[in-house]
Structure formats: C-alpha cells, structure tokens
C-alpha cells in the first residue's frame, strides 16, 4: 500500500510542528504510516524540538498511543523535546485514563506549546 501523507509538517523557528491529517487514528495501516513519518522527523531529519498538534483528531486507539510513546523515547534519546497540543476533551480522557498525561508534556493550544519551547 502506498504511504499517504499522514502528518503536515511546518517549521516555526527551530521548532517543528507536526499536525495529524487523519480524524481517526485507528486503522492499523494508518498507525504504521504515522509512526514511520513521525520517527523520520527525528531519525532522518534530525529534528530536536517537535510539537504534535491533535486539532483534527477525533479518535485515537491504544495502538496509536504506543507510537506516541515510542516517538517520545526517540526524541528523548536524541536529547530533544516533544510536546503535544490541541487535544480535544474526549481524547485527553484517553491520555488521562492511561496516565500518559504524566508522561507527555501536553499544552492546550499550539501557541502555548510554542512558548518557552
């Protein structure tokens, strides 16, 4: 299957903002592609400061959480920083229930995520 673009990448200064394109991050193939595209930001492009913007995301499964955890590890391993932002209430609940809100640095808006980053 051809790998479609699953994230929009934008640069603000030395910060990379990756915005998810999909409303539903559920499908196994999509999740694999999202993982590869996210990891490439760190492993191939050497980006150190990454913000993941969830404003379009309406659904998220535990398999997607797994990719985010791996992304966090990769960013930390390269001495970078990862922030998550614009997570709607239902989705935030998924993070809170699994206590991943403690693992990730989560901000309400993209502006807030950019501040002091």
């Amino acid at each position: 299957m051809a790998a479609g673009r699953r994230i929009d990448v934008e640069e603000v200064g030395d910060v990379t903002i990756a915005t998810f394109v999909d409303k539903k991050i559920l499908d196994e193939n999509n999740i694999q592609q999202i993982g590869s595209q996210l990891f490439a930001l760190v492993e191939e492009d050497g980006r150190k400061r990454v913000i993941l913007d969830f404003s379009s995301v309406e659904y998220l499964s535990s398999a997607a959480l797994g990719k985010l955890i791996t992304m966090d590890k990769k960013v930390k391993a390269s001495s970078g920083k990862l922030r998550l932002c614009s997570i709607r209430k239902d989705i935030y609940e998924v993070f809170a229930i699994t206590k991943l809100n403690k693992l990730f640095d989560i901000k309400d808006t993209q502006e807030e995520a950019l501040q002091g980053f």
Partner: peptide
C-alpha cells in the same frame, strides 16, 4: 497494569483498560 510507573513507557497493553473505562 499499564499505568504502573515501570510500565508507563511500554508501548502496548492499554486496550483493555480503555474498554473498561
């Protein structure tokens, strides 16, 4: 338990917990 401190960074094991919640 995926929320235990030692498991927090494991990338799997959260599905059942989400269904319960």
């Amino acid at each position: 338990d995926p929320t235990a401190l030692e498991n927090l960074e494991r990338p799997c094991g959260r599905g059942i917990m989400l269904m319960k919640a």
